[in-house]
Design a protein around this nucleic acid. Structure first.
Length: 504
RNA sequence: GGUCCCAUCGUCUAGCGGUUAGGACGUCAGAUUCUCAUUCUGAAAACACGGGUUCGAUUCCCGUUGGGACUGCCA
């Protein structure tokens, strides 16, 4: 133990620096709730001059999924959540930290605070059934802890029999007593003491359970603040007791609320689920081309609700400049609000210079949509001109672009292979041909508009109707940005062809 | 069933004993514009309920109701 303390000494960090960690299990994809927690971790460390780590909790070999770690790391990079895994406090895979867990377990064993248990899965199943039938709390505790007081001879006999024990906690807790646990947002929470002899080291692979790994890792990694989901609240007393047993000071805990949605079938609020909700998966936002910054701002504003106001007032530029206060992190579950995310996304995209917008859109297409990528590659300048429409006046930038993907769909009519002529619209062909006769692509905007006005007058229609005929003929849509700009970008030939197509 | 967490406009929230209960998204109306988007103006919209404590409760305490989490050799 002393060796470990020496090997992983307290960090040499300024007063008030947060040492945090995001500790996901590599069981599939990255959950939006995980991203939320990781953001809080990262932010708290960043603003305090501390350290943010990424620790992989791969202690459940059964649920492990190939590539999961890669997905997690990739997500962290894409969202700009930079972690700093200093080798000194590693390794950062729990599967590689067996020595540490075993040393601590040996210490507990020696002090009579843990014991080898030879209960099989069937034994435990039976115990559980009996407990349920009798109305007792389930679990291995008190008189149900069969192997609590095994003699050395009995243990040897089991071992000789080829049985591999789990190492269980010899719980000293008494549910009659209350234990108070400190949470940074919720304050002191009282629980009955834990009396379960929970598993510390599993028998099948010698790896620790979450509870034990958390104890050892966050102590030796010198974590100061543990940000985790509120699903850990019930085991909070256990963790507090564990730290007391070791005589270690526990980290400060921040239990975050879940990110929920209303279930469309039951109408009830529930946590975003990997199985049913695509938006629970961070990859969904990437594939659909949501700006990562917007997602982060949306999430960040949930954790630090004053952010949006500070940003609107121009006091801060991004979430990284706004101070997040642990105490203000909300404790009730927030419904995921797509509309508000859209707003953040629109605002973000509107703030981008054209060059940057084009780059982002292209990057997305290159990765997720080869057809678009190919189309853009033919003439990147064309896309730039298209996206530059209604972007010259900073006060009047169009805000209908939400994602990179939707941006392209929004302007798809600029490409002939994607242009869908509107066959429903009742065109005024006289207006169209009247315009065509006087059309000159070199006209400036006023001249162009005056021509429309006179064509309208000649045909006895309103100016707006004349413009609408043109708009629909050229784009197939009734809603578009500035018509003049569109025609400028489309070019003379396309304009003439599309109008002729309608007239005939 | 047991333990624990939570409860302000539709949504996210500000509030930390005395406020016309503030903001944002969304919604609606009006103005501007060749349509849309933008921009600007305005409107509707909340303290779950019942007891206390107090001169005074959205705020503190208790209860009810509602929602959520946990109750695994999963995290």
């Amino acid at each position: 133990m002393a060796e470990l303390e020496e090997k992983y000494p307290p960090r040499n960090l300024p007063e008030g620096a947060f040492v945090t960690r995001f500790a996901p299990s590599p069981t599939g994809y990255m959950h939006i709730g995980g991203l939320y927690q990781a953001l809080i971790d990262c932010k708290l460390a960043q603003q305090s001059g501390g350290v943010f780590m990424l620790r992989i909790e791969d202690t459940d070999t059964k649920r492990e999924v190939a590539d999961a770690v890669k997905i997690i790391e990739d997500s962290m990079h894409r969202f700009g959540l930079q972690y700093n895994n200093d080798e000194k406090y590693g390794p950062y895979y729990q599967s590689k930290r067996k020595d540490i867990y075993h040393s601590v377990a040996a210490d507990l064993l020696a002090r009579g605070l843990a014991y080898p248990c030879f209960l099989t899965a069937e034994d435990m199943e039976k115990i559980r059934e009996n407990q349920k039938a009798a109305g007792f709390a389930t679990g291995i505790y008190g008189e149900f802890a069969r192997d609590r007081n095994l003699t050395e001879e009995e243990i040897i006999a089991h071992l000789d029999n080829g049985e591999v024990p789990t190492i269980r906690l010899y719980s000293m807790g008494n549910p009659e007593n209350r234990i108070f646990c400190k949470d940074a947002v919720r304050g002191s929470i009282g629980f009955p003491e834990n009396n379960e002899d929970i598993v510390l080291i599993k028998s099948n692979d010698g790896l620790p359970t979450y509870h034990f790994a958390h104890l050892c890792d966050d102590h030796f990694m010198r974590t100061t603040h543990v940000v985790r989901g509120e699903e850990w609240l019930p085991s909070f007393p256990l963790h507090t007791q564990l730290f007391r047993m070791m005589n270690w000071t526990p980290p400060m805990y921040i239990h975050t609320s879940t990110i929920d949605k209303i279930d469309s079938e039951t109408g009830k609020q529930r946590k975003l689920s990997k199985r049913h909700d695509p938006e629970a998966n961070v990859a969904f936002f990437l594939a659909d081309g949501w700006p990562t910054e917007a997602v982060l701002e949306y999430l960040g504003n949930i954790a630090a609700s004053g952010y949006e106001e500070a940003k609107m007032k121009g006091q801060v530029k991004s979430i990284w400049e706004y101070e997040m206060r642990p105490k203000k992190i909300p404790m009730s579950g927030a419904l995921f609000d797509m509309k508000k995310l859209e707003w953040w996304a629109k605002e973000f995209i509107a703030s981008l210079p054209v060059e940057e917008l084009v780059k982002r859109v292209r990057d997305w297409a290159d990765e997720y949509d080869s057809q678009w990528a190919a189309r853009i590659a033919v003439n990147p300048e064309y896309l730039k001109c298209i996206l530059a429409i209604e972007r010259d006046n900073p006060k009047r930038i169009r805000k209908d672009f939400i994602t990179w993907k939707q941006t392209l769909q929004e302007v798809s009519y600029f490409w002939d292979d994607l242009f869908v002529p509107n066959k429903e619209y009742e065109y005024n062909k006289a207006v169209l041909s009247g315009f065509l006769n006087t059309f000159d692509s070199c006209d400036d905007k006023d001249t162009w508009w005056n021509k429309i006005v006179s064509v309208a007058a000649e045909n006895g229609v309103k100016n707006g109707d004349a413009a609408m005929n043109l708009r629909v003929a050229l784009t197939g849509r009734t809603n578009t940005p500035d018509l003049y700009s569109i025609m400028q970008v489309m070019g003379k030939d396309k304009v003439i062809n599309r109008i002729k197509e309608i007239i005939q």
